[in-house]
Design a protein around this nucleic acid. Structure first.
Length: 288
DNA sequence: AGTCTTCTGAGCTTTACGTCA
DNA sequence: GGTGACGTAAAGCTCAGAAGA
């Protein structure tokens, strides 16, 4: 079996021209994808996140504290017992100044929030601690969207056909799934990213195996070289041999055929007619 | 019931590319 | 034709809620 065939038969679909001859160690060559580390924001108080600045949609808490207000979110789209909002990035659609509350729940704001000094945080918490029961309704409406099985299946089906969507397809799919185009878009973005991540992990495992196999093979070949050297010392290399000497692979010690009677009587030891490239996935000898 | 891990929806930033003045 | 500004899409990174172990 050829090298390329082996490569194409692996799950990663990578050709075997993967630089397998590199001598770097696994630790050096293969770095696993970054772990999905979870770092909690400095303040995960639900009261805190119900706060919003009155005039800053980015929830930039560097805004003057006195301008802080409490706000309710205004769901604009409800289906499947879940509450959706208009594209939070599209502030032109927001008629209520309090609508920014929705996006203030998002993690993306945390990065900026972390920059806020501790004094500001305390001040914010003091304000937010006065959140009334009304806000609890808003909190309840903050449930994370979970796509239904049907929606997921449909998205998967579409993703199989094409991993990217043009605006028309996005609109159509969103309409069909009763989702926002933005949600469809995000799903595809995440799907692409995670597919790639998974593929990277598969490739990583594949390369690890290659490395192990090559290390073993290298060890074996070096041993073979030692044996051949020892053989050379005990037997002169060009010693005349009988014409009917059997050819034997020094590695696997299999008989390669009878010379003399056939076509190959030029040498006493037959070698592979073509240059040999080692394939770590065929367990054959380097000389076979 | 509390903890940990995994999955996943979503936001933000960066990068690449096309268009236009 | 070269160039800078601008818009857009995708990739990449990250966070955090939900669910299951």
């Amino acid at each position: 079996m050829g090298l390329d065939q082996d490569a194409s038969s692996n799950n990663s679909g990578l050709p075997l021209i993967l630089g397998l001859a590199l001598t770097l160690s696994q630790q050096e060559t293969i770095t696993p994808p970054p772990s999905n580390k979870i770092t909690k924001p400095f303040n995960n108080s639900s009261n805190f996140i119900t706060c919003s600045t009155s005039n800053n949609h980015n929830n930039n808490l560097q805004a003057e504290l006195p301008s802080l207000t409490l706000g309710l979110s205004y769901p604009k789209n409800v289906n499947n017992n879940k509450v959706y909002y208009e594209d939070p990035l599209d502030f032109s659609t927001q008629t209520s100044p309090h609508h920014s509350v929705v996006s203030s729940f998002s993690s993306g704001r945390v990065k900026r929030e972390r920059d806020v000094s501790s004094e500001e945080v305390e001040a914010i918490e003091r304000v937010c601690s006065r959140v009334s029961d009304e806000e609890e309704d808003a909190v309840a409406a903050r449930k994370k969207l979970r796509l239904t099985k049907d929606q997921s299946a449909m998205l998967e089906e579409n993703f199989k056909q094409h991993s990217t969507l043009n605006p028309k397809q996005k609109q159509a799919l969103a309409r069909e799934l009763n989702l926002l185009p933005r949600q469809v878009e995000v799903w595809f973005q995440n799907r692409r990213a995670r597919t790639k991540l998974k593929q990277t992990e598969v490739d990583c495992e594949f390369l690890k195996k290659c490395c192990e196999t090559l290390t073993d093979e290298n060890r074996r070949l070096q041993k073979e070289v030692q044996e051949l050297k020892a053989l050379k010392l005990t037997q002169p290399l060009y010693m005349p041999m009988p014409a009917a000497t059997l050819t034997m692979c020094p590695s696997c010690e299999r008989l390669g055929g009878v010379s003399g009677g056939g076509a190959s009587n030029k040498t006493t030891f037959s070698m592979a007619p073509k240059p040999h490239f080692y394939n770590p996935f065929t367990n054959s000898s380097a000389a076979c």
